[in-house]
Write a protein that binds this DNA or RNA. Sequence first.
RNA 1: GCCCUGGUAGCUCAGUAGGAUAGAGCGUUCGCCUCCUAAGCGGAAGGUCACAGGUUCAACUCCUGUCCAGGGCACCA
Length: 582
Amino acid sequence: MRSHLTQLLEQSLQRLSDAGALRLPEDLAINVERTRDSAHGDLASNIALLLAKTAGMKPRDLAQRIADHLPASAQVRKVEIAGPGFINFFLTERSGQAVIETIHAAGERFGCSDLGKGKKILIEFVSVNPTGPLHVGHGRGAAYGAAVANLLDACGYTVTREYYVNDAGRQMDILALSVWLRYLELNGTPVSFPGNAYQGDYIREIAAGLRARVGADLLPDAPDLPAEVTAIADPEERLDALIEFAKQSLGASAYRTIHATALAEILRDIRTELESMNIRFDNWYSEQSLFDSGKVDDCIERLRQGGELYLENGADWFRATKYGDEKDRVVVRENGQKTYFASDIAYHHDKLARGFDRAINVWGADHHGYIPRVKGALQALGEDPERLEILLVQFAVLYRGSEKVQMSTRSGNYVTLRDLCAEVGKDAARFFYVTRRSEQHLDFDLELAKSQSNDNPVYYIQYAHARICSVLEQLRARNLEYRPERALTNLSLLSAAPELALLRTLPKYPEVVSAAAASREPHQLAFYLRDLATEFHGYYNSHQFLIEDVSLREARLALIVAIRQVIRNGLAILGVSAPEQM
RNA sequence: GCCCUGGUAGCUCAGUAGGAUAGAGCGUUCGCCUCCUAAGCGGAAGGUCACAGGUUCAACUCCUGUCCAGGGCACCA
């Protein structure tokens, strides 16, 4: 509808321009928006206000001339000039009713569009280090990324969802060591478990599973840890020495067993948890595979050939400042180890090389300083950095009562996503995470979030859906007739205030989906659904649906069935279920 | 110090490419179930849109500065 009116305005302006009454600017952008107040019609344009100056006319006079030159449209009932020079469009009743037919015909596809024209988008999100279970903070990026992916899907993009698995590097070694030490404990070896290793109980569980599988095969030759290692004062150095000791005394193969077991167990846990929240990935992309395939070395070599690297203090530095970063960044350390950044370069280069038109990353806001170097590296490799889009999600700072909950995976002190879902339900959790703009800081009290679970807006929306299902259930129970095809011929009977309001609200849905996808803001959809549910509940309370008058009854049922469809479609995008009973 | 985000009702937050009287939920308060689920509805109260300038016919929205809050500034991941 908006594009239809935009076209009408374009034609009118063209006529004025052809008649020499107006010179149009090159970058003419016609804005038509839904009005907030129905006294201003259904849609309005401010085009006359924007063009008044260049046209040398008073805004209202120009608006009148534009209105006079508008082509006739079957959809438009009346055009008014109002306020400082707005052109207000009043649509025919018929055009409002048409949305119900459209919804009935499109079903679960209502709201979908082909704006994306099948363009391939890779969206990477969550990508939490596989060193422990997901916690509440990770849930936000998960729910947000999944919703953005679904929105893009609905808008006709070909979406691939990917989880980048950081399965290489020191953190994984610390994880393997942690599991091994717990395993030693279970086998009766006295161990003073380092404070900076992973503390969580899940480490013990993995160790127990390992012991059940391999028995005592992974014990070191000597019963005690060597004194020269345990004596190291610096905790981080001692940890590294312990890792080295584990590798030495176990041998590469046995060490790999522990490493692989720990990784597999934790990934399984993460995947299970995400799937229980309705979040699925097409790819789990291994960081280690980038090293194994030589892609990391290839990228480093290409950068070196291109003169993008230089050697200083024994390390290889990437000239990030050349691309706007604050300082140059190390790619290969003095000790020969590649940094996380090195594999990140290869990863992002590979994303674009895989043929995606666009790669979207959902990152925690704490990574924002990382953006210039990654984009810089892509540019240095000859790629267009604009193809990489980074969406930042602000931290969720948790409070338990008035006390801030400190979260650190290594200390094992955190609230898991699983705990949260168990308390408030996965639907509430998913909805809750996306009801705020992602750039907005999220401070919330866990106790409050849990205790308010019944007040969570998600139940309000789901309840509207369940109520409609219930009405249809009653319809069957009472043996009343409802023939959708006949109902569609009686839509003109919908004339009560809430009905007319709903006929204005429903057509907005596809526009909301498109706008939310374009701006990567699923909260727009969440708010829309809440508003729609509010209108429905008001309608429900003031009007009966299962009435004697067959024609009106059917028209009303057609309307609420359409509402149900839109709620269902919208909740599906947000990953929330639409129960038929509550 | 530099760089990101925010600062809108008592609280938590919306405010759609600047637009016509600033919205919602919770909380407070007054009402509504012989009636399709009261997990609901209706009414009332509640605002110098952090502050000061500027651009504009029009600024919560854009620009500059100030104040406040959170985060980031590693040869860590």
